[in-house]
């Protein structure tokens, strides 16, 4: 077991649903309310030093309860390791705490997740659509959004 997983297990045992390593990637499934705390520990712990927030995204599992999974990828340049955190979020009123206070880069990534999946980030300074336009209804990357339902602003509608 890698340092990251051991540390996470020691310090946040109660906040984790699952942790392990699959296909060569370390991952941990974290309770969504503790995500800020855990990420901060990843960043500030001298044994972990995850200084890059590489990516924030989400996956939609309509059959599962809870429905969404917000996925974070971290990378540590000094120690050269990577970890993936996943936070399950309920489908009816999806909301996760924002990581913007820790990493400025989280800003746009979280806006994109809001735009594509409709997951809100509590404490985000400016949660607007980023890729789609105002007036677009729905969140296109959800599995129940049909791939070719267009909402044109000029020209014919389909």
């Amino acid at each position: 077991m890698s340092v990251t997983l051991r540390k996470l297990k020691e310090n946040f045992g109660g906040a984790l649903f699952d942790l392990g390593s699959a296909f060569g990637d370390d991952f941990a499934v974290v309770h969504k309310d503790r995500i800020v705390e855990v990420s901060q520990a990843l960043r500030d712990d001298p044994d972990l030093r995850y200084n890059f927030l590489i990516d924030v995204t989400a996956v939609d599992y309509p059959q599962r309860r809870p429905r969404f999974e917000v996925v974070y990828h971290f990378f540590s340049l000094p120690l050269r390791h990577r970890v993936r955190l996943k936070a399950p979020v309920d489908g009816s009123d999806p909301e996760v705490p924002s990581l913007v206070p820790l990493w400025k880069g989280a800003d746009w990534f979280e806006r994109e997740v809001w735009d594509m999946f409709g997951i809100r980030f509590a404490g985000h300074p400016d949660l607007r659509r980023i890729l789609m336009y105002d007036g677009f209804e729905g969140h296109p990357l959800r599995k129940d959004y049909p791939v070719n339902r267009r909402q044109p602003r000029v020209g014919p509608r389909n």
């Binding site: 659509r129 980023i130 890729l131 789609m132 336009y133 296109p140 990357l141 959004y145 791939v147």
Partner: peptide, 13 residues
């Protein structure tokens, strides 16, 4: 941004 959004991720699915 977003003026060239072409739904890469959705298309892949």
């Amino acid at each position: 941004i977003g003026y060239l959004h072409r739904a890469f991720e959705k298309s892949c699915e």
